[in-house]
Design a binder for these strands. Structure first.
Lengths: 196, 196
DNA sequence: GTCTATACCCAGATAGAC
DNA sequence: GTCTATCTGGGTATAGAC
């Protein structure tokens, strides 16, 4: 298999493992197992665990920003037929779609929680501000609108990190998820079911 | 020193370290250093690192719920003189005050991000739902209001985890923090300054 | 109640074969 | 490009003295 393809496979596996266990809790061995290669190969390809994590963050951030741009484009298109449509809703819709690959949002979130780390902190802050500037300058939102998008986003990330949907049977749980993601609760439930 | 006092001292140190580095990244040695005791003593007192983490979570959750109740009481009192006052604002005010001890909110947040862990996950989900039920049943908010409180809370937790205020000089950073916490940006900045 | 010394395990990284 | 074998460091936990 060509190295570029293997690389993408490993990055995807790594995003999942880092997202689930955090930077320190994730082992290169677990990543290797997930990608069906040997542990030394993972280290070899990226140089170190830290470098692998940075590569994962770059990839995740690129995907996230691409999603925002896609959502903005979809919004423009939709507005032609429905002048009542809202950008925030379009973004919310695409955000939940991103959750199909939980590693993308959760690996970023894990990095955000390590701001006190001298190596990861600066990278995480820079990444966060790229998100902020993308929404404000490229998508054209006001700072209030951006914060409104981000805070619901962080709540959703937390619910996903918690695996709260695993307790869907608890009526309080389903009530809270449905309230937080009204348009998309069905998908969340289905994803939780199929993944246990 | 009596054991109960030492215990509280160690719990406070542990909350800080777990909040900064996450469950796996935190070492019992770092906790011990922070509390000025030996590493084996920390393990001895709580039995294991896992048990220590659970004790930290219990303590953090108790503090958080107590804060909500205090805020609700303050709201009732305030409403006597100012009928325009809002509960969400009272809670927001007290929430930021909790940040003086970042360990409380960040250790909880780190647990929330480990929902996939078979040991920590159930504890984290149960803790989260205690928060939800407290706000809904004891404080008397609707589920929409609770979600509105929680999403801004999760954004603030993320900003604190990021140590974003460290980059206050960046005008985009100060704009975003001021937008997210209008009443309290001054305090956040002051805390960031004094702690570097 | 608190320490020092240490056993033991596990994870990241390297060497080197194929 | 990819593996097996292995070195090494560091972190939890235990033993046992004071």
């Amino acid at each position: 298999m060509p190295a570029t393809e293997r690389r993408e496979l490993i990055l995807e596996a790594a995003a999942k493992v880092f997202g689930e266990r955090g930077y320190v809790g994730a082992t290169t061995d677990a990543v290797a197992r997930e990608a069906d290669v040997s542990q030394p190969y993972v280290v070899r390809m990226f140089g170190s665990k830290a470098a692998l994590f940075e590569a994962v963050l770059t990839r995740s951030l690129d995907r996230l920003l691409a999603m925002f741009r896609d959502a903005a484009a979809a919004f423009e298109e939709e507005r032609a037929t429905d002048p009542e449509t809202e950008l925030a809703l379009c973004i919310g819709r695409n955000y939940v779609d991103l959750l199909r690959d939980r590693g993308i949002l959760l690996s970023l979130m894990q990095a955000f929680m390590l701001g006190a780390d001298p190596e990861i902190g600066p990278v995480a802050r820079a990444g966060w501000m790229r998100v902020y500037r993308c929404l404000r300058d490229e998508i054209g939102l006001t700072s209030e609108e951006v914060v409104g998008i981000l805070d619901r986003g962080m709540l959703i990330n937390t619910l996903v990190g918690l695996r709260l949907a695993a307790d869907w049977d608890d009526p309080d749980v389903s009530e809270m998820i449905t309230t937080a993601m009204p348009q998309k609760a069905g998908i969340v439930r289905a994803l939780a079911d199929e993944r246990g």
